[in-house]
Amino acid sequence: MHELSIAEGLVAEACRVAAQHRARRIDTVFVKAGALSGVEPPLLQRAFTVARAGTVARDARLLIELGPVEVFCPQCGAVSGAAVNRIVCQACGNWRVEIVSGEELILSRLELSEIGEEREQPCVTPADAP
């Protein structure tokens, strides 16, 4: 259920960027979620439909790109993939590895429209609504 908190953060961040660009509409939101980010994409999708209501993202699509876990092994130098609960070097089995990717949870891109038109309040969230 923490996906709702994350979706609210996502919508707030997207609104902030849209406002910086004077966009009145967000068409698409791209998110990169690593397998170790603790986020389940279907749950984030559902939470997003709740969090976007009443904002400039109200009609936005959410596209989630799942990032695999990758580790670097300081022992043998290999970079390999790993399962979320088996984060060890595929080449030599060492568990003292460094995570290269898989932890990310980021808003990577936005598609905006209705830009630069003179209109007040490009970004209203439910919390601001009268």
Binding site: E13, H21, I115, E117
Partner: peptide
Amino acid sequence: HLVAAGGPHAHTTDGRATVDVLANLLAEN
């Protein structure tokens, strides 16, 4: 400067933009 006259967002042909962002979703937290 992005949105000022002559800036990249001042006018777009179809009123659309793709913006690359690198923002942590838990940034506020």
